[in-house]
Design a protein around this nucleic acid. Sequence first.
DNA 1: GATGAATGAGTCTTCATTCAT
DNA 2: AATGAATGAAGACTCATTCAT
Lengths: 207, 207, 207, 207
Amino acid sequence: MSQVAYLPVGKREQTKVQNRQAILDAAREVFGELGYETATVRDIIRRTGLAAGTFYNYYRSKEEVFAALADEGARRFAPQLKAIRAQSPDFEVFVRKAIEAYFEFLADEHRNWAARRPPDEPHLHIQGETPEMAAVFNEVRAAMEQAISGRDSLAADPDYMAAAAIAVARDIGDKMLERRPIDTRAAAKFAAAMILNGLKGLPKAGD
Amino acid sequence: MSQVAYLPVGKREQTKVQNRQAILDAAREVFGELGYETATVRDIIRRTGLAAGTFYNYYRSKEEVFAALADEGARRFAPQLKAIRAQSPDFEVFVRKAIEAYFEFLADEHRNWAARRPPDEPHLHIQGETPEMAAVFNEVRAAMEQAISGRDSLAADPDYMAAAAIAVARDIGDKMLERRPIDTRAAAKFAAAMILNGLKGLPKAGD
Amino acid sequence: MSQVAYLPVGKREQTKVQNRQAILDAAREVFGELGYETATVRDIIRRTGLAAGTFYNYYRSKEEVFAALADEGARRFAPQLKAIRAQSPDFEVFVRKAIEAYFEFLADEHRNWAARRPPDEPHLHIQGETPEMAAVFNEVRAAMEQAISGRDSLAADPDYMAAAAIAVARDIGDKMLERRPIDTRAAAKFAAAMILNGLKGLPKAGD
Amino acid sequence: MSQVAYLPVGKREQTKVQNRQAILDAAREVFGELGYETATVRDIIRRTGLAAGTFYNYYRSKEEVFAALADEGARRFAPQLKAIRAQSPDFEVFVRKAIEAYFEFLADEHRNWAARRPPDEPHLHIQGETPEMAAVFNEVRAAMEQAISGRDSLAADPDYMAAAAIAVARDIGDKMLERRPIDTRAAAKFAAAMILNGLKGLPKAGD
DNA sequence: GATGAATGAGTCTTCATTCAT
DNA sequence: AATGAATGAAGACTCATTCAT
């Protein structure tokens, strides 16, 4: 009867994992609803039912949960994106698939938000409000930049091109979330068309 | 032959105007660097060398400077945009001209920012948006939405179309500001091409 | 045509006197409406139409106007009281007359108050809200103390007696001001009877 | 045989109760010395040795401590008053007993005040009223008003009568607190006599 | 490891008073 | 002497973080 415990799976550790996740989930909601500045640690911890001090057993600061959140998002989405890249025969397919995947992710994420920010503050257009989204967004960007820069026939200005593609994906994604029902397919189709046709029409290098 | 004073020109009035402007300028900088939430009234007033209370002689609150800033931007830009719309023979020309004007405005605005903060905060990519820019941006959006919705042959989804166009204009604009030298012409050309070709390639209504 | 000016009565001085009075009047109103703490110098000066700084040409501080106000009240009322004392054949008459005079003063003062304090703050029973009233009140006290202490047959406890008499006069005075019409005669009659004979000695209903 | 804990008695709970009480005590003092307006939360918290923010762990605002204080006083005193009314065979006895009880309360309260401020402010006679006293006072007033209005044989003007009785009780109470030693018996006797019979009915010197 | 009260720096805002014009 | 903007010391309150239990 040896006590072999390769991984900590005792009750205590179980709780630890759960708490960590609970805080992360709460943080996702709260940052989504209030934004980084307005959100308070108490807002986050209140949703978990834990005590204020407990927060600091898991994350050293408000900033750190924020970062952890971003990490998690990226970690979840990155593999998908890699797979898509590997499986796509060409750039167009990649764009379509990637956007689709991103929109799915977005919609999924969105469903987990309870409430939405009351529209009472002056409010710029702040991109990527949720750190996860921001992280995912960066993944997409990286993939797209690489894909684009590989196609030098198009290489009018890869940086601008990636920025434009990303911009479209992001904002169409946001708009999509405001509609009912949320139609990720249609939105993805639109965004892909916009991006691909726009890119194709760009003056070639040397024009 | 007394001197007719069309405007109050005493030293007092002069100082007043200067202070008001100084506060507005400082606010522009601070909001640009820190974002609305993070920025404090003290941050603003500190740059002016004025006393804390003086801020409130000019603006009743942080929110009010913010609004004033937006107003100023809109007030300066709106007439230009209206003129562009009136003078443009077709949608393409309008898009090109509007984007050009917006980019000029952006570049201009940008030149007035003194320093940038060292990137030590978790602030994502929030910076780079002054309330003035946000306001101008809204002007562009309105114009573009109207222009697009008038072209029903293209009417795949006017809302998405406007969003996409705006997204491209905004993000290419931001990217443009990061380059040296700032080339508004090239950026505008790129953005316009991206938008117009993208839009053109969209499936027509009924497809 | 000599320019004999025994007293300063030029236009400048006239204004000075007027301003001083205007500030005093405004202060009376404002202190009456808001109380000493809540009232601000700006509240006072705003009603005069003068500029903020001008206040300090006439009074060195908020506290000083307050004191001046008290002074004025006392100065106006003291002679009356002295006369009453001289003319009263006995203590009872003095009490009656003094109370009557005080109530007249009160009613008069009251007519000059525009509005009343909005009843929104927690609010103890603060006596003598107006500095003038406080001053007058002190005059009455002095007179009554002297009158009482002169009548040693009654001298149970002169200090308590004066306090009790004053208390009745003040609070009945206040109550009187809340009624419409303001009947100083009836109120004075009641207060005097109460002071002299207590509840039991009051005229029965129907008397 | 474990120890059944009917109340939380951990060190934490103990400190909490102590702090709450300390704040309440400090507030009583401070309001008594400075009045509601002049008193600041910092004045209160400073006396407790606690940190500024700690105040807000116990009371949400200055106004709330004030209310809590009043509550506490009323809660302590109301039952006594009710008992007195029930036990009094007639109005005179009720008046005597009620005043006595009120004066006891006052004296008791007074003993708990630590220091008095040097009289350097223009504050008239505002001090000397704790919110608790005000609350208790209102209890007395209510009881007395009801008692008076029930005696229609006397009903010259019940409103004025109650006001007069109350005025005497309050002011004699205040005066009493200024004497050394504080003799609640004598003061109560005087006040009751004064209310019932007026100056003329007071016991002559030597009675 | 959880708890939640304590901490205190920091925020916005008000206001009596000063002072250049 | 009038003006009214500038000043800066408070004030009430918030909140990330610490720490005794």
